[in-house]
């Protein structure tokens, strides 16, 4: 590796730690500002995952928990896009993990007791490794919205959780993907922890008719951007010298 660098994170673009409308943040938000330092070898390195580290159905949530011959219930969708850095450079060979509720808005988790029934053919987790150009794709069913305890009448918009790795551990990110046109996006205290509409919009997947397979499955496009771009930062620093 040459002079590897990573751009600082724009903390004003992310949700602050304390967001009282999202009640759980009140007791779980540090009060001190995080301390900054230039990333060292520890933060610039990170785990690597080979294509052989995952199974053939891991990226297909319609089938990866289903009984033999069974399929998960719900609107069939492809979720796909590009994993890239802030310069738009595709990030190949990166692990992307997803989890979600079923079509009724129920999670397969010991702690979820929502009225909506479990789907015996749906587990709700999947993963894939990004391709040469940073592209990725999952098959799943569209999750349902659901109510959650936050002190009022709060409903989560339909969403899919994403966990993403970059080249360095400093790029590690967990976020959520929403669906174009969902009226709950504007109402959700968790979505609204994000300070700007512009930032929220980047988490809203768009219906992608070009990738839809006729008479089979619709597609949603969701690009994921990880922080950093060694090249840009390096140029900036050159100018400053």
């Amino acid at each position: 590796m040459t002079d590897q660098r990573i751009a600082p994170r724009d903390l004003d673009w992310h949700p602050p730690a304390l967001t009282p409308r999202y009640r759980s943040s009140i007791l779980r938000s540090p009060k001190h500002k995080p301390l900054s330092y230039a990333p060292t070898a520890t933060e610039l390195s990170g785990p690597t995952f080979g294509h052989d580290s995952i199974g053939p159905l891991d990226d297909d949530l319609i089938q990866n928990y289903a009984r033999s011959g069974g399929l998960a219930i719900g609107p069939r969708i492809i979720v796909h896009g590009k994993l890239m850095d802030e310069n738009g450079r595709g990030l190949p060979g990166k692990l992307i993990e997803v989890w979600q509720a079923n079509a009724g808005g129920r999670y397969r988790h010991k702690k979820d007791g929502y009225l909506a029934p479990l789907d015996e053919n749906f587990g709700g987790c999947g993963r894939c490794i990004s391709g040469e150009d940073g592209s990725y794709s999952f098959r799943t069913i569209q999750p349902g919205p659901y109510p959650w305890p936050n002190g009022g009448n709060d409903w989560r918009p339909a969403h899919i959780h994403f966990s993403v790795f970059g080249d360095g551990f400093a790029q590690r990110l967990i976020t959520q993907m929403y669906f174009e046109g969902d009226p709950h996006i504007a109402l959700c205290p968790i979505v609204q922890t994000i300070p700007s509409k512009a930032a929220i919009n980047t988490l809203v997947a768009r219906l992608d008719m070009d990738a839809t397979i006729p008479m089979d499955i619709r597609a949603y496009r969701f690009d994921i951007v990880l922080r950093g771009s060694s090249a840009t930062v390096f140029e900036n620093q050159m100018e400053g010298r």
Partner: peptide
Amino acid sequence: MTAHKESPSQTAGPYVHIGCTP
């Protein structure tokens, strides 16, 4: 200037285990 902003973070939520530690 960067062409894109980092995707904003969202909480992993109470069901993070489904995706990360099934």
